[in-house]
Design a protein around this nucleic acid. Sequence first.
DNA 1: CTACAAAACGACCGACCGTTCGTAAATAAA
DNA 2: TTTATTTACGAACGGTCGGTCGTTTTGTAG
Lengths: 210, 210
Amino acid sequence: MTEDGRLLRGERTRTAVLDRALPLATTAGLDGLSLGQLADTLGISKSGLFAHWRSKEALQLAVIDHARQQWTDEVIRPGMTAPRGVRRLWAVHDRRLAFYEDGHLPGGCFFANANFEYNARPGVIRDRLAVQLSDWMAFLTSLATDAIEVGDLRPETDAAGIAYETESLGVCAVMQAPVLGPVTFRHARHALHEHLRVLATDPTLLPELT
Amino acid sequence: MTEDGRLLRGERTRTAVLDRALPLATTAGLDGLSLGQLADTLGISKSGLFAHWRSKEALQLAVIDHARQQWTDEVIRPGMTAPRGVRRLWAVHDRRLAFYEDGHLPGGCFFANANFEYNARPGVIRDRLAVQLSDWMAFLTSLATDAIEVGDLRPETDAAGIAYETESLGVCAVMQAPVLGPVTFRHARHALHEHLRVLATDPTLLPELT
DNA sequence: CTACAAAACGACCGACCGTTCGTAAATAAA
DNA sequence: TTTATTTACGAACGGTCGGTCGTTTTGTAG
């Protein structure tokens, strides 16, 4: 950081590298990510990457953190603008699906891909992914708990079950979309909509589905 | 094939190779599968593999077909022994979960891993995986349609929606199990159980869940 | 301007990758 | 047994991988 608050050159480089590495890792896999290819598409040298990260693994961890930041900005934060309760739960679900629906992201969901890539490879990377997954499930559960507390959902509702169903519908959508097309997002929306409508004390809190 | 019906030596070798390649590909990825490592663990030479498959890609396709055969034997066929209707749909769901629940398969579900690995990589392999996924979803849908036809599920039930929900619960379970443990299988069972119970004309067709 | 540290580079390394090829062993049919 | 074919091997190839090292360029601070 310079004295007038501007970013150092290195900081700008790191951000540019991670911005480019994230889609590459989403497409080729976090392990299949090639440092040579990454450097080439950025117009810098491969050895130059090692001036910012000591190893490929260190860069991979940085990519995970970068993806998490993007997830927070694009899914969680917009969803949190909805009023507390079932509307907020729905907003997060809808926002997540919308994030992938138009297909502007090559490779689909980074976290889904990475979790499946590493679910049989113990190590630092899987640990970092596991933390993200745990936190995300805890967040979804807290949304469901909130919805019960404010009276949007019936008291006997299973908050963890709602969270699991929400997550499963989202994950399946990003898996099937490249093969089966946009209908998967329709299913992912309708299924949770139906489920929440049954459990809701006031079904009008949920938007109409086309 | 010899005249008395025994397998040729090559046929035995091919089966042994695929038996070993399937767990390796499930763990390291279909692309990450190393021919050298595969040959080493089998006690044969790397070049010997090329006597049976012309390229790595050809072997990868064979692995997919092998996995599909295993899936048919271990999930579909046992599930089909249940009586037609909602009990058969439930049996397939339960059988699929049980197949992964005890963790005797290193790397989780081959098809889930492979689909996420290749969902952004067009080509012969993704095409083969897409056929498998389409067929599987069509199979699940046909089970739901059957259940409606025999009167187990209410006539207005959305068969494709049931199929999508069944698949999503299963996929999410194999993704989360290594991180969150067996509770994910409990969620996957309870969610579909609850859903089917609501839609069933006779809830007693479904087994009690512990 | 000088001094210093951050940043980027090119050349190179050993390891592993998928693949080819000529040859030898094993097994089938005659 | 002889013959033909299948199966397997060892050696080698070009290429890519992550990573190291010494050097040069770039930008900041004094």
